[in-house]
Amino acid sequence: MRRQIPVVITFIVGSVLIISVFIPHKPFGQLGENFSVYFDIIAVFAFILGAGNLLRVHGNRIYKKHKDWPYSVVTVAGFTVMMIAGLFKIGGSPGITGDLTEPGSMFEDLYMYVFTPLMATMFALLAFYVASASHRAFRAKNKEATVLLLAAFVILLGRTPFGVELTSWLPDPLSFLEIPNLASWIMSVPNMAGQRAIMVGIALGVIAMALRVILGVERTYLGADSE
């Protein structure tokens, strides 16, 4: 029973949602939207599990004097302060209807001067990682990687003034070989073909995966293998 009921729930919910696309009549037409809202609500409850896990992992490290335990104190403190600042709207208008992101409130300040620079810098590190990945790609060892590199190179050049300059001397009949023209051709023809093949493949993969899940053929996510 413990295993069967979840499989039945998945089957009913999944198949009703698929069928409901063809049935505009109430309540079917709205189901997809409603179920997404249900998920949002479930996710908030689940967050209590996540936060509990975070506190347990770092609490353990502090308790057991793990090598890096002082950093765990930072994590726990950061979490607690942010949560209290937000839930109690410290420094802002209190009450349920008060503006959470009011300028000058502690929550907003922490967001602006701690959260945002950390996030933006982490994102900006990508510039270095892109450079190192490109470096690796430059040492392309096989034909496939060489094709990838060439396409990347043309597109990259096509987006820079240098690339425009480089081939602007070409005579008119050969203008299709000018880097910006070549780049836009690659984007709109072979790139598009590859994208379409990938997307069609993904759609078929999702359809088969969804069917395996709905029909109960795939139930690993329920941890049902042992019975």
Binding site: A133, I198, I202, L204, G205, T220
Partner: peptide, 16 residues
């Protein structure tokens, strides 16, 4: 570019 093996799109769903 960066990994040894990549499951591309549909292969991800077929993998399990």
């Amino acid at each position: 570019a960066a990994c040894d093996y990549t499951l591309i799109g549909e292969e991800l769903f077929a993998a399990s």
